[in-house]
Simulated assay, not measured.
Amino acid sequence: MISMFLLFSVFILYSINRMTNSLCIQKEIPEERQPKVFRFINVSITILLVSSYVEILYT
Rank of each mutant, 00 (worst) to 15 (best):
L13F: 02
S44W: 06
V54C: 11
E28R: 08
F40D: 09
V43H: 15
I2S: 14
I25V: 10
S22D: 11
P35Q: 10
E28A: 05
N17D: 07
R33H: 05
Y58N: 08
P35G: 05
I41F: 12
T46S: 15
S52K: 08
V37G: 01
N17T: 06
V10K: 10
N42K: 04
Y14C: 06
M1N: 09
V54G: 06
P30C: 00
R39K: 14
S22L: 08
F38A: 01
V54F: 11
S51R: 12
Y53W: 15
S9M: 05
C24M: 10
S9Y: 01
S51E: 14
R18G: 00
L7A: 14
L49I: 09
V37E: 01
L6Q: 12
I2K: 13
I16D: 04
L6P: 05
F11M: 09
T59I: 10
V10W: 09
I41L: 13
M4T: 13
L13N: 03
S51M: 15
R18E: 04
L48C: 14
F38K: 01
L23K: 06
L48N: 07
M1V: 11
S9N: 01
F40L: 13
M1L: 09
S51F: 14
Q26H: 11
L13H: 02
S15A: 09
T20K: 02
Y53H: 09
F11C: 11
I47G: 12
S15T: 12
Y14A: 09
S44H: 08
I12R: 07
T46D: 07
T46P: 09
S15W: 10
S3Y: 15
F5E: 09
I2H: 12
M4H: 13
N42F: 00
N21D: 07
S15N: 14
F40Q: 09
V50K: 02
E28H: 04
P35C: 03
R33E: 07
M1R: 10
E28D: 07
L6D: 13
Y53A: 15
Y14R: 04
I45T: 12
K27G: 03
V54Q: 09
I45R: 05
K27C: 07
F11I: 09
S9G: 10
I16G: 02
K36I: 07
L6S: 14
I2Y: 14
L48M: 11
V43E: 15
S22N: 09
I25K: 08
E55K: 12
F8I: 11
I2P: 05
F40I: 10
N42M: 02
P35Y: 01
S9E: 02
T46C: 14
R33K: 08
E32V: 02
M19Y: 10
F38P: 00
F38Q: 04
E32R: 00
I41S: 08
E55T: 13
Y53Q: 10
M1G: 13
